[in-house]
Simulated assay, not measured.
Amino acid sequence: MPARARRSDARDNHALLLAAARAVFAEDGPDAPLDRIARRAGIGNATMYRHFPSRRELVIAVYAGEVASLTSGARLDAADPGAELFAWLASFAEHVRDKRDLALSLTTPAGGHETLFAQWHSTMNETAAALVDRAKAAGAVTPDTDPLDLLLLATGVALANAPARTPHLLALVRRAVSTP
């Protein structure tokens, strides 16, 4: 028997909870009170717990949505593949800087987060690889440009926690791999 589709009010509540959780976590971090998220969504705590029985499940859903947004934002049909690659790397650096605490809140001494992290990293690596391949094909970056190297450099830029310097630092990276 096929799974029943969610009722429209349940879908709406789910979406409201995710939007509220994104906003509250961005404001107060991943340890923000869950009842504040329910209030922001305009629903009761019991409804929230029916959708997300634990904080961990809510954080996973929010972070998975952030990763999906980041990777789906890559324009693999952009007219200027080099510009798109570095625009996406800027978004990636912002993601690392702004969402790091959310992701790290999922790590526990008991583990269990490794599979999730591997899936998310794989998705981001695949997106970066596709963008680098297009930039290489367009002659925008050198043939030896490695997607993982760019992700590591962008991560370093993000962890420097100097948002005002991020565009300059990424421009330095771009100059290092751009073709003459």
Rank of each mutant, 00 (worst) to 15 (best):
A21R: 13
A21L: 13
A23W: 10
F25P: 02
A26W: 04
A26C: 00
A26M: 00
E27V: 11
E27F: 13
D28Y: 15
D28N: 15
D28E: 15
D28H: 15
G29T: 13
G29L: 14
P30F: 02
P33N: 13
P33G: 09
L34Q: 06
L34C: 03
R36M: 11
I37V: 15
A38F: 12
R39L: 12
R39K: 11
R39S: 10
R40Y: 11
I43Q: 03
I43C: 07
G44T: 02
N45G: 02
N45T: 07
N45E: 07
A46W: 01
T47A: 13
M48D: 02
Y49P: 05
R50Y: 09
H51W: 07
H51S: 11
P53W: 09
P53E: 07
S54C: 09
R55N: 04
R55Y: 05
R55H: 07
R55D: 03
R56K: 12
E57C: 00
E57N: 03
E57V: 02
V59A: 11
V59P: 04
I60L: 10
I60Y: 00
I60F: 01
A61L: 06
V62T: 05
Y63A: 00
Y63L: 07
Y63T: 01
A64R: 14
A64L: 04
G65W: 03
G65L: 07
G65S: 10
G65R: 07
V67F: 10
S69D: 15
G73R: 05
R75H: 12
R75L: 01
L76C: 10
D77Y: 03
A78C: 09
A78I: 08
A78W: 12
A79L: 12
D80C: 03
P81K: 08
P81N: 08
G82I: 02
A83I: 00
A83W: 00
F86S: 04
F86N: 03
W88A: 02
W88K: 08
W88M: 06
W88G: 04
F92W: 13
H95M: 01
H95I: 00
V96C: 03
D98G: 04
D98H: 06
R100F: 11
R100I: 07
D101F: 08
L102N: 08
L102M: 15
L102S: 06
L102I: 14
A103E: 12
A103I: 05
S105V: 07
L106T: 00
L106R: 03
T108A: 11
A110I: 00
A110N: 00
G111V: 05
G112N: 07
G112I: 04
H113C: 00
E114R: 04
E114D: 05
L116F: 08
F117G: 03
A118P: 00
Q119Y: 01
Q119D: 09
Q119H: 04
Q119F: 03
Q119R: 11
W120H: 06
W120N: 04
S122D: 15
S122E: 15
M124Y: 05
M124Q: 13
N125L: 12
N125A: 14
E126W: 12
T127E: 09
T127A: 11
A128I: 06
A129L: 09
